[in-house]
């Protein structure tokens, strides 16, 4: 009796989960099929398998879009911005974790304030600032690096500070007693031990920057695109041709999904790491 009742609950539970799984994945599946349909097929019978599989859509995207360039741009911006952000964040986090200086809490709160600042508050001034005489970055890819690095700092410092604080202080003190300067302790002892947190921060920043839209939309000049911008502009251009746009979406998502499939644990940990109590 008991097992029977249990198994009913078991079945219902799995059914509910299956429904939600379908809701999550079916749109993506539908889009992938759409990328291989002929155009008439997509308009007349958008459900089910394609009447005839075709690669024409993918070929057209490769010929007409400049996704290759957008990929390069995104990669360049993200790599540079992530490197700058992480270097600065690790050092600052180390100082917050190890040194007791005056005004430390205030400075830390100032950094954490960044978690609450909507990026859109900064769009107008950044547009001014980056075009100003001193920087002259307006419109170029380099314009994105500063804002990306700057807005990546709060979460990174938060995560890394906790990681450094969790290290046994005796270990770091011992290295200092042996005559290492703080920079040496940081580099030879602190950093290697904080590697898991570094990975988390790296993934978090890279994915957020890779998918970022508002800054790219505002700060890049005409003709310059990152991947998210390229998608929306491609849609604008080929609006009525569902199959071609779906093929473009598929091309953009395949690499992400592959990476995600390989490193799901790290990626999930990375993207949820900002949500610490």
């Amino acid at each position: 009796m008991n097992t029977k009742k249990l198994s009913a609950a078991f079945v219902i539970r799995h059914l509910l989960l299956a429904v939600f799984l379908l809701l999550t994945l079916y749109p993506l599946f539908w889009l992938s099929l759409c990328a291989f349909r002929s155009e008439g097929d997509a308009l007349q019978r958008p459900l089910g398998l394609p009447a005839q599989w075709t690669l024409a859509n993918l070929r057209e995207v490769l010929h007409s879009g400049n996704f290759a360039q957008a990929y390069l741009n995104s990669l360049l911006v993200c790599v540079v911005a992530v490197l700058i952000c992480i270097t600065c964040a690790t050092m600052a986090a180390y100082a917050f974790a190890r040194f007791n200086f005056r005004g430390k809490n205030w400075l830390y709160m100032l950094f954490l304030l960044g978690l609450m600042i909507p990026v859109h508050v900064t769009l107008i001034p950044l547009n001014q600032l980056l075009g100003a005489d001193m920087l002259r970055l307006k419109g170029g890819l380099a314009a994105l690096i500063g804002p990306y690095a700057g807005f990546g700092l709060p979460v990174s410092i938060l995560i890394l500070r906790r990681a450094f604080e969790a290290l046994p202080a005796e270990l770091l003190d011992a290295a200092a007693l042996d005559g290492c300067s703080n920079l040496q302790v940081f580099w030879h002892v602190g950093l290697p031990l904080a590697k898991p947190a570094l990975n988390t921060v790296l993934i978090f920043n890279f994915l957020t920057m890779w998918n970022e839209y508002a800054f790219a939309l505002t700060l890049l000049g005409p003709g310059r695109q990152t991947v998210p911008l390229a998608i929306s502009e491609f849609k604008g251009e080929f609006d009525l041709r569902i199959t071609v746009v779906c093929a473009a979406l598929l091309l953009v998502m395949i690499p992400l999904i592959c990476v995600y499939a390989c490193a799901q644990k790290q990626i999930i940990r990375g993207l949820t790491a900002g949500a610490i109590k």
């Binding site: 700058i84 952000c85 270097t87 600065c88 964040a89 050092m91 600052a92 180390y94 100082a95 040194f99 400075l107 100032l110 950094f111 960044g114 600042i117 900064t122 950044l126 600032l129 500063g146 804002p147 690095a149 700057g150 807005f151 700092l153 410092i157 703080n182 940081f186």
Partner: peptide
């Protein structure tokens, strides 16, 4: 340790 992060944060945020 603090100046690089603070400079970027101050300038861009």
């Amino acid at each position: 340790f603090l100046l690089p992060a603070f400079t970027i944060y101050a300038l861009f945020v």
